[in-house]
């Protein structure tokens, strides 16, 4: 462990890691990294490395936890044994149980749990490398994993911490600031600014607390922007993809664009043909007893299949 530094902020207002007081650490996001999970996200925030996975909605066991009218969100925050310098004992601890509980509750107002009565949505976040602010980083990753899993949500959740060092408020604490600072205030909020998680460690005056809230809000807005970008860039633009695809084909098969277009038209003709064919039986079934004609069609198919067999 490093010693406590003399000053956290130098005379130019620059912090130990070169940031200004209202600046968050650089964030790197990758969505859909786990193939077996319904949704997943890998997030790096400064030196924090978090992996989040979402499973479900799926059947909830043990059954006594089932809620008859809504889904249960089971959030798990866990630090890997190797995530910090001194190996931490694996398995749930007092700290991780508490963080799991409050982080799960941070998603309560946004997830449409009433759509899936009796089911469970499992959110699992693993801290692979810890460097202060892991619970906020885990929430940011979990939001994106939930979106990736196709869970209906009213909005995204972003989280970020504000702390006090050298008697000054700073956004998004790093490890030394967290260890030796005077206060740590992690906050999670929805896009509307509704606060869904607020914890505090240390001391702040009421005025400082208000100012800290404002800072956290600005920090969360930056994070929303990063989250949005990550979601938007994953599938690319609707229009861009087919063009890029065409170019690829061109280079591979050295087919000239004109010819390709020509072929498309050909395909189209056939499509129209199918449409025509489709209309006829519909019209017939309308004029006759519709059910009868359907059964006929189906038995015909059955016979055809038997023949094949």
């Amino acid at each position: 462990m490093s010693e406590k530094p003399e000053h956290f902020i130098d005379e130019n207002g620059i912090r130990l890691d070169g940031r200004r007081v209202d600046e968050i650490r650089p964030m790197k996001i990758e969505i859909g990294v786990l193939s077996r999970a319904d949704g997943s996200c890998y997030l790096e925030w400064g030196n924090n490395k978090i992996l989040a996975a979402v499973y479900g909605p799926r059947e909830l066991h043990p059954r006594r936890l089932q809620r008859p009218n809504e889904a249960f969100v089971r959030y798990r925050y866990n630090m890997a044994a190797f995530s910090v310098e001194d190996r931490i004992r694996p398995g749930p601890s007092r700290r991780s149980t508490e963080i799991s509980k409050v982080s799960g509750e941070a998603f309560e107002p946004v997830i449409m749990i009433q759509y899936y009565p009796g089911a469970v949505i499992d959110v699992m976040t693993e801290v692979l490398q810890a460097d202060a602010g892991t619970r906020t980083a885990a929430i940011n990753a979990a939001t994106l994993a939930l979106a990736d899993a196709g869970i209906p949500m009213k909005g995204l959740v972003a989280a970020c911490a504000v702390g006090k060092v050298d008697g000054q408020l700073v956004l998004d604490l790093n490890k030394p600031e967290d260890n030796y600072g005077d206060a740590d205030l992690p906050i999670a909020m929805t896009q509307d600014g509704e606060i869904t998680l607020l914890q505090m460690d240390g001391h702040l005056t009421p005025e400082e607390f208000k100012a800290a809230l404002e800072m956290a809000k600005k920090g969360c807005e930056q994070i929303f922007e990063i989250q949005r970008e990550a979601l938007m860039s994953r599938y690319g633009d609707i229009e861009v993809v087919p063009v890029a695809e065409k170019e690829e084909k061109d280079s591979e098969e050295s087919v000239d664009v004109l010819e390709e277009q020509g072929e498309k038209v050909e395909n189209l003709d056939e499509e129209e043909l199918t449409d025509e064919e489709i209309v006829e039986p519909e019209a017939e079934s309308d004029s006759e007893d519709s059910e009868e004609s359907t059964t006929n069609a189906e038995t015909e198919e059955d016979e055809g299949e038997k023949d094949e067999q």
Partner: peptide
């Protein structure tokens, strides 16, 4: 590619792709 447009055409093209004679259909630009 389900979020992209003009997919039916591309799938048709993809399935025919290998065997098709591409030369004949250049007229209807």
């Amino acid at each position: 590619e389900s979020h992209t447009s003009g997919l039916t055409d591309r799938v048709g093209h993809f399935l025919k792709g290998d065997e098709e004679d591409l030369g004949e259909a250049e007229l209807v630009e």
